[in-house]
């Protein structure tokens, strides 16, 4: 009896946020899906059509944008997570417990400051008269400003790696913190060196955190709009920019919806594949 009233209470309590998520998230996502089957203004005169999908997947412009978005995102994710792991490791294993939250705090602060301005400042750093070029010129390392560091995919990758740093660090840190330190001592006691212990014990145990941070960086960055717009140039344009154009400039909602759905499907498939590929390592933990 209590069990039933227990779940009744739980359901009652969770119903406001659930209702909100259904109305404001599930409903609208369904709407997007619906719109992706609605003919465009110059499309066939039917109620529903698959033409949007054939067009989106057939047109090299769209196809290239989607593939580029996924590639840029994957590169940004890889770099972000690779750069983040040593930091998470450093904080978890070498910073004294009392100072850990200070370090985490230091890492999260930049994340909470104006996103737009942060991205814009990367444009300043990477630009022709930017910090990097003037610095390198002054040091005499280069004679002319480097042109290849702004308005291209590399600039987008660097900027995203910066913007999503805390997202990558925190899950890894949490996973590392959970590792029972006596396991490491046990490994060394059983004859493994510190380095081998890292690869045979620490790293496998940190896999769930790494997987979480990969997903938490990859998924939102695929749909990032501001970064490619500000530092990407024409070669760094990503799918979100096209979705925005379809909706706000061309007023072509069916195509905008179709591109959104395709993006979501790609992201979901890649994420699932990634999780599946790591499932064996994740399972060992539970």
């Amino acid at each position: 009896m209590l069990r039933n009233s227990d779940s009744a209470r739980g359901l009652t309590l969770i119903s406001p946020p659930l209702l909100y998520a259904v109305l404001m998230l599930a409903g609208p996502l369904g709407m997007i899906l619906m719109f992706s089957f609605v003919p465009q203004s110059d499309g066939p005169n039917t109620l529903i059509t698959l033409q949007n999908y054939t067009e989106a997947l057939g047109d090299p412009l769209y196809r290239q944008l989607i593939i580029r978005s996924l590639l840029i995102s994957a590169a940004a994710t890889a770099i972000t997570v690779l750069l983040a792991f040593p930091i998470a490791y450093f904080i978890s294993f070498y910073v004294p417990p009392k100072r850990k939250s200070l370090w985490l705090f230091l890492i999260t602060i930049p994340f909470w400051t104006s996103y737009l301005i942060r991205i814009f400042l990367w444009k300043v750093i990477l630009g022709l008269n930017g910090l990097l070029n003037t610095g390198l010129l002054k040091l005499g390392l280069i004679n002319e400003p480097l042109e290849f560091i702004l308005y291209n995919p590399a600039a987008v990758v660097i900027t995203l790696a910066h913007a999503f740093a805390p997202f990558a660090i925190l899950p890894i840190f949490v996973a590392l913190e959970k590792i029972d330190r006596s396991l490491l001592e046990a490994s060394q006691d059983l004859g493994e060196s510190k380095v081998r212990t890292f690869f045979r014990v620490t790293l496998p145990l940190a896999v769930p955190g790494v997987v979480a941070s990969v997903l938490i960086v990859f998924i939102p960055t695929v749909g990032d709009y501001v970064t490619p717009r500000l530092v990407g140039g024409s070669e760094g344009t990503m799918i979100a920019n096209m979705i925005q154009v379809q909706f706000l400039r061309l007023d072509n909602r069916p195509m905008g919806a179709t591109l959104s759905v395709i993006t979501m499907i790609c992201v979901t498939i890649i994420s699932l594949l990634f999780v599946l590929a790591n499932r064996r390592n994740m399972k060992a933990r539970t």
Binding site: M24, P28, T221
Partner: peptide
């Protein structure tokens, strides 16, 4: 249920934005 409510955390914001706009 919790997954659905937490979903916006990982969903690209542009998707949230355009889906709401369409509605």
């Amino acid at each position: 249920i919790v997954g659905l409510i937490m979903l916006p955390l990982v969903l690209p914001e542009i998707i949230v934005a355009v889906s709401l706009l369409i509605v």
